[in-house]
Computed example of a mutant assay.
Amino acid sequence: MTSQGDDYQTSLLSGVEDSSGDDTDEPRQSGLGLGLLVLRLGLGVIMGAHGLQHLFGAFGGPGVGGFAHVLEMFGYHKQTTLLSWITGVTEVAGGALVLVGLFTPLAAAGLLGVAANVVYAKFHGGFFVGDGKGFEFELLLGLVALALVFTGAGRISLERNTPWRKRPLPLGLVSLLLAAAASVVVIVLTR
């Protein structure tokens, strides 16, 4: 005979750990896991490569000094070198974590914050504008990051047995708030 407290505790923990592997939802969920992997790979590689451009000048990028100058052209006038470092590190670290599927809601929130600032900086230039002045590409990256904030990494990831993979909404909401706060702080302090 179990007490009411034991039943309550058991119900709180049910579903947090994976079962022996024969989930009844597996056939239905296998496409979801693969789809999330594709989104993670795309976002992680693209944002990580941008970060390597911004930090080290890889792939023909500007490096920290050149990126600071680019930020000035987009209306950031204070602490542009520091902002270059923060942006590059966020892109590389966030891209790597999203790529392997570890701390995905937080990593995706960092990438969302970067994308949101780029959209804000390019917004006056229009949606579709040649020479990289439009913001449609960064908006798409931000939307992919936003989706991963709320979905998490999926089954094909390093965070397979974490509580936030089973219930991603609470950490997703916290991560979204952190991304929004960081974006506002960057805009207020550097523009």
Rank of each mutant, 00 (worst) to 15 (best):
V16D: 08
G15K: 09
V114Y: 05
T81W: 03
L83D: 06
L97I: 03
G66Q: 06
R155Q: 08
K133I: 03
V16C: 06
V174R: 09
G126S: 14
M47G: 05
G88F: 08
S84D: 00
L32W: 07
G61A: 13
G5L: 12
V184P: 00
G154C: 07
G51V: 07
D25R: 14
E72Y: 11
Q9L: 14
L39K: 05
V98W: 00
Y76L: 12
L52E: 01
E17F: 15
P170Y: 10
A121D: 05
W164K: 02
V70I: 14
K78P: 00
L177K: 01
W85L: 15
K122W: 08
Y8C: 07
R28Y: 11
G35Q: 10
A145L: 02
L102P: 03
V188R: 11
V174M: 14
L71R: 06
L41W: 05
N161C: 08
V114I: 12
L158Y: 08
R191M: 14
L139W: 08
M47D: 01
V188H: 05
A181H: 06
G110I: 00
L173E: 10
G60E: 07
G60I: 02
Y120F: 14
G57A: 13
G65P: 06
F74I: 05
G95C: 06
V129L: 11
G63R: 04
R28C: 03
L102Y: 10
L112Y: 10
E159Y: 01
V144Y: 04
A147Q: 10
A179S: 00
L173F: 15
A49Y: 03
G66E: 09
G94T: 05
N117H: 02
R191Q: 15
G101S: 08
L102G: 00
G33R: 02
A116T: 11
T2Q: 04
L36D: 05
G101T: 12
P168I: 07
A145D: 06
G42T: 03
A93R: 04
T24K: 08
G48A: 12
Q9C: 03
I46C: 03
G42S: 07
A116H: 08
K122D: 11
R28T: 12
L102W: 10
L52W: 08
G154E: 02
V70Q: 11
Q29A: 13
R160T: 14
G125C: 03
N117K: 03
G142P: 02
L112Q: 00
E17S: 15
L171T: 07
V174Y: 13
V119F: 04
L102Q: 05
P168K: 10
V149E: 11
K122A: 09
E72F: 07
H54P: 05
K133H: 10
F128E: 10
L102N: 03
T24Q: 02
S175M: 05
S19G: 14
K166A: 15
I156F: 15
V174W: 12
L141T: 01
L176S: 11
S3T: 15
V114H: 03
H69V: 15
L143W: 11
Q53P: 01
S3W: 09
L13H: 14
T87R: 10
F150Q: 02
A49H: 00
Q9T: 04
L13E: 13
G61D: 13
L148D: 09
L143R: 07
H50P: 02
L34C: 09
V188G: 02
G42A: 01
F123N: 11
G94F: 08
G94Q: 04
A108K: 01
F67I: 07
E138Q: 04
G152Y: 06
